[in-house]
């Protein structure tokens, strides 16, 4: 059961990164790829009908965490308190900036919300990357499984890390670039003409940065957490995952060069999934490692709920997932194709 729920949570987190990743990517690119008001609106229309539903995956994984791994939920959410609250505020501001942008014709209204949209999307990408890096690096857990991290201490990964240190900042930058590329590839699918061209050009340029960062992050992870590769060595079949990371990176480059926008976007989805699954494999069966004594790791058995809860939950999870996936298929089919300025509003 622990194994099942670990991977269910992982799958939902991956779904969140794939879906909201391009929303954040579009937000990051919004001030740079759009030169005119019409282009800004086109970029917003590309994510308009779907951004709200995409965010739902974050709540789903967080809620499932609460239900299946209550100790992890309690420990992590109070330990990362400030960062979590900031993420919450950024999510609110990102949503408000998308929806309120068109409401008034006062001078700086639109520019203000465009700026807010960019800043909140960029910071969200960085924070999410830093969060993943924190989980990999480990936190100073004490006896009863709790901890509290200040936002930063000395930027070093030692016995007393802060939420931000060189490794989690690296994680944040990787996420920032990866999601920007993901968003650009999504735009290449959804837009036409000049905007699509600029998105493609950006994706190709940023690909180099992303590849370099990916290469740097693996040894960095090994330095920070020496036992990352233990699971890989025990089950050599899992080496297919880092292989997928490399392959998908290559595919992104090749497809976007030849105008295969959909395949390039699909490759980007595979890249992000492979990176996250790879991190999960390195983590298993820990949920939140300890930066000090390894006996204090929050592992699956330590954090798991009782068997009755988990069995009942599995049934309801399946039902909920069925509904959610049906909804997603319907919405994405309804709004498929290129965006245009004809229809009113964001189409939702």
């Amino acid at each position: 059961m622990g194994f099942i729920w670990f991977w269910l949570v992982a799958v939902m987190l991956v779904a969140y990164v794939l879906f909201d990743g391009f929303d954040l990517g579009v937000g990051i690119l919004h001030p740079f790829l759009a030169r005119r008001e019409e282009e800004r609106q086109l970029m917003l229309r590309a994510i308009g009908p779907v951004w709200d539903g995409n965010e739902v995956w974050l709540l789903a994984s967080g809620g499932t965490l609460y239900f299946a791994f209550p100790l992890l939920y309690a420990s992590a959410f109070s330990g990362f308190y400030l960062a979590l609250m900031i993420v919450l505020w950024l999510l609110i501001m990102r949503g408000a900036s998308i929806e309120l942008r068109m409401q008034m014709e006062i001078g700086v209204w639109r520019s203000f919300f465009d700026g807010l949209f960019f800043i909140s999307s960029a910071l969200l990408a960085i924070f999410f990357g830093a969060a993943l890096a924190n989980v990999i690096r480990g936190v100073p857990l004490n006896e009863d499984g709790y901890f509290f991290l200040p936002l930063w201490t000395n930027w070093r990964v030692g016995p007393e890390p802060g939420i931000l240190d060189w490794y989690s900042v690296l994680g944040g930058v990787v996420a920032f670039v990866a999601l920007a590329v993901h968003g650009a590839l999504y735009l290449a699918v959804k837009t036409e003409d000049a905007l699509q061209q600029r998105a493609r050009v950006f994706a190709r340029w940023a690909w180099g940065v992303l590849a370099a960062l990916t290469v740097i992050s693996l040894p960095a992870s090994i330095v920070v957490r020496g036992d990352t590769l233990v699971n890989y060595k025990s089950y050599p079949v899992t080496f297919v995952v880092p292989l997928m990371v490399v392959l998908s990176l290559v595919c992104i480059f090749r497809f976007s060069r030849h105008g295969g926008d959909r395949m390039a976007f699909a490759s980007s989805c595979i890249y992000l999934s492979a990176v996250l699954v790879g991190a999960a494999i390195g983590l298993y069966p820990r949920l939140l490692p300890s930066s000090g004594d390894a006996a204090r790791d929050i592992t699956i058995p330590k954090a798991l709920s009782g068997p009755h809860t988990l069995h009942v939950g599995l049934a309801w999870w399946a039902l909920g997932m069925l509904l959610a996936l049906t909804y997603f298929v319907i919405v994405y089919r309804m709004f498929r194709g290129k965006v245009s300025l004809d229809s009113g509003g964001y189409g939702h």
Partner: peptide, 24 residues
Amino acid sequence: YSKYVSAGNGLFTLLGFMGMYTVL
């Protein structure tokens, strides 16, 4: 309650939320 979240953090985020909700 969360024993490890200090009162200052709680107050900071409370004021943050109040401010955000007021503006919205």
